[in-house]
Deep mutational scan, measured.
Amino acid sequence: HITLTNLITEETTHVVMKTDAEFVCERTLKYFLGIAGGKWVVSYFWVTQSIKERKMLNEHDFEVRGDVVNGRNHQGPKRARESQDRKIFRGLEICCYGPFTNMPTDQLEWMVQLCGASVVKELSSFTLGTGVHPIVVVQPDAWTEDNGFHAIGQMCEAPVVTREWVLDSVALYQCQELDTYLIPQIPHSHY
């Protein structure tokens, strides 16, 4: 019994991606959610070859190996599938703050939850000092008015990073160091 759908849910078992011959794909929301959820992320060749051979072929032979941004053979989907007991964002409290493009905020929040993070909706909701690490995620190029994202640091004691930190961490299924993704914050004294 196979159901085809464009939506990823808890029940989804396989995410089928358009890939090149070496099982490398573009980074899409579907790709990120498939990895975050520990699903099989496979090339569409799995479907076409299975139909051709009239049997369901082994997914291992068709698993996506990499993507056009993070590298052609990083094995993120395999790492995620085999590490669902070791979520990459466990112990983190993440607030997805401000506008985002090409990806609804609720989907970004679901993605970080699938990776083990707790989501907070407001900067004031962080449970500071409880052994949980707060992180604010923003997408600077989605902000149309002044660079308000440079002043988020005044509203909460949390590192502010770009959305790329989430996307790179999920694609590779390895929590990336914050340093290269940090957004400089204007210190309090400048006000």
Rank of each mutant, 00 (worst) to 15 (best):
H190V: 02
E59S: 06
H150R: 06
V132M: 05
Q174W: 09
C95V: 09
G153L: 13
I94P: 01
D61P: 13
R65A: 14
N6W: 09
V69F: 00
G98M: 02
R163P: 06
L114W: 01
G34D: 02
W110Q: 10
L108P: 00
V41D: 00
Q176E: 13
F32Y: 02
H190G: 12
F89L: 09
G98K: 03
M17L: 03
L108K: 01
D85P: 12
V119L: 09
G91V: 06
Q84F: 13
A80Y: 13
T19G: 00
S124W: 13
E164Y: 07
G98R: 04
H150L: 11
V136S: 01
L172V: 09
V120E: 00
Q49L: 13
G71C: 12
G71D: 01
V166S: 03
R90L: 11
M103L: 08
A142T: 15
S189V: 08
G38T: 12
F89R: 00
Q49T: 13
F23K: 07
F126W: 06
L108A: 03
S169C: 09
E157S: 12
G153T: 05
Q139M: 03
M103Q: 03
R54T: 13
E122A: 05
Q154A: 09
D67M: 02
W40T: 07
F23R: 13
L92M: 10
I2D: 02
K78R: 07
P77D: 00
F32H: 03
R90A: 15
V69S: 05
D20E: 03
M111T: 04
F23P: 02
T5S: 07
V119Q: 11
I135K: 03
E59Y: 14
K121R: 10
V42C: 08
G76A: 04
L92H: 10
E82I: 14
M155L: 04
E122D: 14
E53L: 03
G91I: 01
E164Q: 07
Q176D: 02
P104R: 06
L57M: 07
K121D: 06
N70K: 13
N70P: 00
N70R: 12
Q139P: 04
L182R: 10
E157Q: 11
K121W: 07
F45Y: 12
E164V: 08
R163Q: 03
S169T: 04
M56Q: 15
S169K: 01
